[in-house]
């Protein structure tokens, strides 16, 4: 564990808590893409299959349980509890256009052609594009609530901090995972446009409204 990865995990944790607070306090899921949350649930389920078979640390296990638990709770809030406030008309991204190519790529490009490894690779690739339905929804509605912007900023920062973690681990431990790094770079790049809007607008107390 290093400071970059710890900050990354804390940023990820913060993002999930911000999202849950937004939903619980406003009792509304307006502006939130249920499809992205379903993709995140798929990512965590696929990645944490080893939750019961390989023990890394208490921290690792607790975080995995928390991430899986909260993402399914989020889906429950969107599609059941606060269903009336879910804006399905604007949440229209065709996720099959993500899942099929990502699934195929995981079969072709992986570290080891073994079931658990292919599923792990699938979760890494899927995570890099899982935010697209959410960004697509914001581009369709033309705006994002400030709290949703904070959620996206924390979520985007988490993987950017992981990139720093991988640089550190390469020099400190000789650890290098090309698949995770490439997917992490793609994932972070997808947030760049949003980061720009967040820093130039939200930081000045304005709301994000597209086109910028």
């Amino acid at each position: 564990m290093n400071i970059f990865r710890l900050c990354g995990d804390m940023s990820h944790l913060a993002a999930i808590i911000i999202l849950l607070l937004k939903m619980w306090k406003t009792r509304s899921v307006a502006g939130i893409s249920g499809k992205s949350q379903i993709l995140f649930a798929t990512v965590f389920t696929a990645r944490y299959l080893d939750l019961f078979t390989s023990f890394i640390s208490i921290y690792n296990t607790c975080m995995k349980v928390f991430f899986i638990g909260t993402v399914y709770f989020t889906i429950y809030l969107i599609y059941m509890k606060f269903k009336a406030t879910y804006d399905s008309n604007h949440d229209s991204f065709r996720v099959e256009f993500l899942i099929v190519p990502v699934g195929g790529l995981a079969f072709l490009v992986n570290h080891e052609f073994a079931p658990l490894e292919i599923i792990w690779t699938f979760s890494i690739y899927l995570e890099s594009v899982a935010i697209l339905p959410q960004l697509f929804m914001i581009s369709k509605t033309g705006e994002a609530e400030t709290i949703t912007s904070h959620y996206l900023f924390a979520l985007g920062s988490y993987r950017a901090l992981y990139l720093c973690n991988w640089i550190y681990r390469y020099y400190a431990e000789g650890f290098f995972d090309l698949i995770a790094v490439v997917a992490g770079v793609v994932q972070t790049i997808l947030y760049c446009d949003f980061f720009y809007l967040y820093i130039t607008k939200v930081m000045k107390g304005k709301k994000i409204s597209l086109p910028a």
């Binding site: 990865r5 995990d9 990820h12 990645r47 080893d50 390989s54 890394i56 690792n60 975080m63 995995k64 991430f67 570290h111 792990w120 992981y162 973690n165 390469y170 431990e173 000789g174 650890f175 290098f176 995972d177 090309l178 995770a180």
Partner: peptide, 10 residues
């Protein structure tokens, strides 16, 4: 450096 066989990151 090889990648860890076990994925130790979240």
């Amino acid at each position: 450096g090889a990648k860890l066989g076990l994925h130790d990151e979240l």
